[in-house]
Amino acid sequence: MPQKKIITIVGAGMMGSAMATPARDNGHAVRLVGTPLDDHIISRARYDGYHPTLKEQLPGGIEFYTVADLATAMAGADLIIGGVSSFGVDWFSEKVLPLLQPGQNVLSVTKGLQDYPDGRLRPFPELLAERLPAALRGRISFSAIGGPCTSYELARRRQTMVYFCGTDAAAVATARDLLATAYYHITPTADVLGLECCVAMKNAYALGVSMAIGLWGGADERQGFNPQAALFGQSCREVTRLIRHLGADTDLVANIPFAGDLYVTIFGGRTRRLGTLLGQGKSMVEAEAMLSGVTLESVAITRRVVAALRALGAAGKVQLADYPLLMHIDDVINDRRPAALPWDALR
C-alpha cells in the first residue's frame, strides 16, 4: 500500500470526480475542486456526497472546494489531477499552472491534440509543459491517462485497464503507485504522442462508427452490426497511418488505448448519441440543438486533426485519400454532406 498522500483533483466533472474513487480507496486525502462550471456539483456533493451528473455517491472523506478556493486546495498537494475537458485546457493553463509548486506533478484525464497551421499535432502534456511559468519549467512533470474507462464504471469499481504516459518515468511510476488498485490497472508508457493520439482519435472515429447505428440500426438501434464492424476496422487502419506519420508506436492502436477505448465509446455516451442522430439524417445544427449543453469532444478533435491533415496534404506530406472515413466525418459535422459513408473509398 503506497504512503498516504494529498491528491487534489481540479475539475469536478464526471471523470475527474471518478478518479477520487481509487485515490480514496488507497487511503489518500482527496480534495475535489470545481471549475467555474461546477458550482452546482460542489454544492450538492458538500451536502450529501452525491454527484448529480455522475449519478453516483462519492467516497467518504473527500474535501470539496469551489474555484474561489483553488489556491487553498492546491497548497501542499502531492499530486494534481487535471480533470478538465479539452475545452478547459486554456482555463487550466491560465488559472492552475501558476499556482503549482515545485515537485507538484500533474496527471491529466484530458483527451485531445493541439493543431498548428503547419500541420503539427501536439499532445496536451507537452503543451501544458510549454505554458508553465518560466520559474517552474523543468520542476513540474506532466503525465496523462489513456484507455477505455467510463467514469461511472470507475466510480463503481469495475475492472478497468488504462495507460499512464509521460516522459518522466519516475513521475509516471509515482502516479501509478498512488492510484493503482485491485480494479484500476495501470500500464506505464513513455510514448506520450502515441497514447494521446489514440485516446483523442477514438472520439472522432466513434462518431463515424456510430453513424452506422443511425443509418441501419432502426428504432431500437440494435442492428447495423456489419457496417459498424467494417467502420471499426477502417478506424484502426486510419489511426495506424496517422500514428505512423507522427512517428509514434502503432502497436498502441490494436491495444486498449485505441481499439479498446473505441469499443467503449461506441457503446454509449454523447458521441454515440451524436453519431446516431447524424446517421438518422439530422444536420449538425439540428443534432447540436438536440444535445444542448453536452460537451462534444468528438467534434473538436475531428476538426483539429482534419485541419492539420489538410495542411500536411497541401505540403505533400500525407495523402488525404488515406483518411476517407475521417474526412467524411468532417464533412458531415460541418454540414457539407449527409452521413452516407464513402464505402468505395475505404481502404
Rank of each mutant, 00 (worst) to 15 (best):
D115I: 11
S86L: 06
I81G: 02
D69H: 10
G61H: 01
I80M: 04
A75I: 09
G76K: 01
P98F: 06
A71N: 06
P59R: 03
S108L: 15
A75C: 09
L107P: 00
D69Q: 12
A68M: 14
S86W: 00
T53N: 15
S108H: 15
Y65I: 06
P117E: 07
E94V: 14
L100T: 10
A75F: 09
K111D: 09
F87G: 09
V84S: 08
D78W: 11
E94Q: 13
L70I: 00
M74I: 14
T110V: 15
G103H: 07
P117L: 07
P102Q: 02
G103W: 00
K95L: 10
L113T: 04
F64K: 04
F92N: 00
P117D: 06
N105C: 12
V67M: 10
L54F: 02
V109F: 04
I80N: 03
D78S: 15
Q114H: 13
A75S: 09
T66D: 11
G88R: 04
V67A: 12
I62F: 12
P98H: 08
G76D: 09
L97A: 06
Y65W: 12
L113Q: 01
I62R: 02
L100N: 05
L79E: 03
F92G: 02
L107Y: 01
A77C: 15
G60C: 10
F64N: 04
N105S: 13
L70W: 02
L70G: 03
A68V: 10
S85Y: 10
P59I: 05
G83D: 03
V89H: 06
L97K: 03
G112P: 08
G112Q: 04
V89A: 02
S93H: 13
V84F: 10
T110I: 12
I80Q: 06
G60R: 05
Q101E: 13
